[in-house]
Amino acid sequence: MQAITFENVSYAYKRADEEFSGKAVDGVSLGIEAGRSVALLGANGSGKSTLAKLINGLLLPDSGEVKVFGMPTVCDDPNGLFDIRKRVGMVFQNPDNQQIASIVEDDIAFGPENVGIEREDIGRRIDAALKFTDMERFRYSQISRLSGGQKQRVAIAGALALEPDILILDESTSMLDPKGRKEVMEVARSLNKEKGMTIINITHYMDEAAEADEIYLLKAGKLLKKGTPDEVFSDVSTVEECGLELPRASMLAAKLKAAGINIDQKITTKEGLAEELCKLLLKD
């Protein structure tokens, strides 16, 4: 089943900002299967975040159509958008700007309260969301005292409380330290593997992207390439054209190869590179 489809979607900001002159998203068509984990890559200003906001109707396309589980984001039914937003959770970049309440459990309750869930049911949802994000012991904590990684896990829990089928991480790890990043990625990974949730991860970290089922490369609002991490990262020129780079291990592999060391070009992880080097050096 298609979780998300874009049909020739374009969007331009109506502000005179330099950064967004022209179309932020330009004629994008794509289809994402339910249950996949997808990484959306592109330089700053390439339209990644705009694309994400088009999915849950925070922005509506100027032309073309966006559908979530077959429901178009532009429709006559005033409740239509809420039906979509219930199914699409979104976690943003800045851990400090997403929480409404001061206390963890009150904040997680915000989403379910908005859609009129009964009180007992909200309690049950908070339990489940806290458990999944491993934040149970912080239930009554003040959010401002938590670490960045913990704040982002509260944000994920807040999204989970609406029991979505899709979770969008809009550069959610970019302001975190390595520990916080690992915590957030772990939650995202298990949501995908255990709950079959569709994950859209917008990121600048190539090692996060290397883990995804598929990668979409964006440049100046256009979809330049789509494929598995192996496929995308072996197309070095396109990756560089997008202002991105290969995962560190792939870059080093390429440099080793250029230095005359016979190494497989398809390496994307450090484990892969270590294995390849061992094979190479121990053979002699």
């Binding site: 929480q99 409404i100 807040g158």
Partner: peptide, 11 residues
């Protein structure tokens, strides 16, 4: 950003 986060959570 908070406005977006609230909208995304069906406010």
């Amino acid at each position: 950003e908070l406005g977006n986060a609230m909208d995304a959570r069906c406010y």
